[in-house]
Amino acid sequence: MDNVILHASKIKKTFGGLVAVSDLDFTVREGRIKAIIGPNGAGKTTVFNLITGILQPTGGEIQFQGNSITRLKSYRISSLGISRTFQNVQLFSNMSVIENVMIGRHPRTSSGIMSSILSLPKKRKEEKEVRKRAMEYLEFVGLGDRFDESPENLPFGKQRLLEIARAMATEPRLLLLDEPASGLNTKETQNLARLITEIRGRGITILLVEHDMELVMGISDEIMVLNSGQKIAEGLPREIQENDEVIKAYLGEA
């Protein structure tokens, strides 16, 4: 399983004068958990936004399963098999918990405007199926009993899990998790670690942005360190822990 699933070459993003990501090269291998770490403002979330097409890169190219996705719209990239969660949780607050996950089934279903308006039998059958599948994903993250609530009623940790369920419902090949453990307590973080490994066990590749070093070191196969939009180190967890430059970036330069 050493196929490259995602390949970014020389990607760059500037906001006005600010260079958020600068000529960044990296690859993600299929079936692995790769972590991106780095101080706040290093450009990690921006990398996610570039991969998922929420932002257009200023330069460079991104390939997914061998095909360029650089100029594709966000929703196209999602249906190709890249899904994500958000650092600042972005749930659909006017919908119930299960409806949030049902949105994830959108790219895998097909009822159009006409069959929706006329409520054709095909649509009703599909709706039932969507609800059933959404329930499975909710149970997978352990939220099965809270399907009918408003996501705003969930504690923060559970909201993060709901985002994972929603992302999983799109049946991604590559899952991007943006600081999934931030705001979680120790027990919740351990649970999350188990969940992430289980997702990998289903054959889904994971790209993880995280500040919790115990989690990162515990589950990652490979780590990339960003600082000021540039890669300053890449390697196995053990190598990263001993890297001087990384330590300097984290402790701040004198």
Binding site: G104, P107, T109, S119
Partner: peptide, 20 residues
């Protein structure tokens, strides 16, 4: 319906809707 749900998702977060 599926379409109505998608419309409501745009209302709440267009970015997240697109990403899904």
């Amino acid at each position: 319906s599926r379409i109505g749900r998608a419309l409501r998702s745009i209302h709440d977060s267009e970015v997240a809707a697109n990403a899904m």
